[in-house]
């Protein structure tokens, strides 16, 4: 896969936003807003020369592992995997259909996907096991895990964070999509996650806080990620906007897991068509 420049990445992010919206509107289900907050992160990883993978050989032993712990954003991963050639794009058109291969949450049997995920707080612990295996075998690949900030209410996340810090899994990168929203409320109204950076640091992690919609900041945080001097795992807290790209879906918890329909769907499509999304 040729590495895209910032203009190319921006264009790709818009294309993926349109794919996600089309999939969800077509199916009448799916997590549009949860996906839109993570789009620049995934586009940077897959198209920006960060992740090592081989489309022709999804099980390549030396590939980086991308563990999507926030499995509700699978509708974001699927069009990327299809675009890269892991499976035909037509499969994304049958999202959640009777003749389709995948639904709202991530499935391990989709080429390019590593795990089944959907129940929060599970994939991240599994990622620590994968990172430990690589550490023991002195393998050079990295394990990236995408977490939602709401997912961090799960106690199992902190069991895994403690384990990774103690075992010095510096081949593990957690990217936390900090969009401040859960299903019904803003995180700081519901149950405060702050001081969020301090929590991760106190569990033995290096922490970088960035704007999760800025390619420059994402790449800045990941610079030299394969040759880090620190023995600690790396947490990137990516400040994002849930629903980024469609104005009326932002900052509104009621859009969790509900795609727009009718006039709102038309508005959403128009908004994406009308502008290049920038951070």
């Amino acid at each position: 896969m040729e590495k895209l420049d910032t203009a190319g990445l921006t264009k790709k992010a818009l294309q993926i936003r349109q794919d996600v919206l089309n999939m969800c509107c077509g199916a009448g289900t799916g997590h549009v807003t949860s996906s839109f907050s993570s789009i620049e992160i995934l586009v940077a990883l897959y198209y920006g020369g960060i992740l090592r993978y081989d489309v022709a050989n999804p099980g390549w032993p030396d590939r980086d592992r991308f563990i999507m712990s926030k499995g509700q954003a699978s509708v974001l991963l699927y069009p990327i995997l299809a675009d890269l050639g892991y499976f035909p794009k037509e499969d994304t058109e049958r999202f959640c259909q009777a003749d389709g291969k995948f639904g709202v949450h991530l499935q391990h049997d989709v080429p390019g996907a590593e795990i089944t995920s959907g129940s929060l707080g599970m994939g991240f612990g599994l990622a620590t096991g994968m990172a430990l295996a690589a550490q023991k075998d002195r393998k050079l690949h990295l394990v990236f895990s995408l977490l939602g900030d709401g997912e961090c209410y799960e106690g199992s996340i902190w069991e895994a964070a403690m384990f990774a810090g103690h075992n010095r899994l510096n081949n593990l990168v957690a990217v936390i999509d900090r969009n401040y929203l859960c299903v019904t409320n803003f995180t700081e109204n519901m149950l405060s996650l702050e001081p969020f950076e301090d929590k991760w640091r106190s569990f033995g992690w290096n922490v970088k806080a960035i704007n999760g919609h800025s390619f420059d900041e994402i790449f800045g945080a990941l610079e030299g990620v394969r040759s880090r001097k620190s023995s600690r795992p790396l947490a990137i807290i990516a400040d994002t906007v849930k629903g980024k790209g469609i104005s009326f879906m932002c900052y509104n918890p009621l859009w969790h897991g509900i795609p727009p329909s009718g006039d709102e769907a038309v508005c959403a499509c128009s908004e994406l068509q009308a502008k290049e999304v920038t951070s």
């Binding site: 590593e114 795990i115 599970m122 991240f124 612990g125 599994l126 990622a127 620590t128 096991g129 994968m130 990172a131 430990l132 295996a133 690589a134 075998d137 199992s156 069991e159 895994a160 384990f163």
Partner: peptide, 9 residues
């Protein structure tokens, strides 16, 4: 979770 990750490897 760790056991599962190790076994997958």
């Amino acid at each position: 979770a760790v056991a599962a990750g190790l076994a997958m490897e």
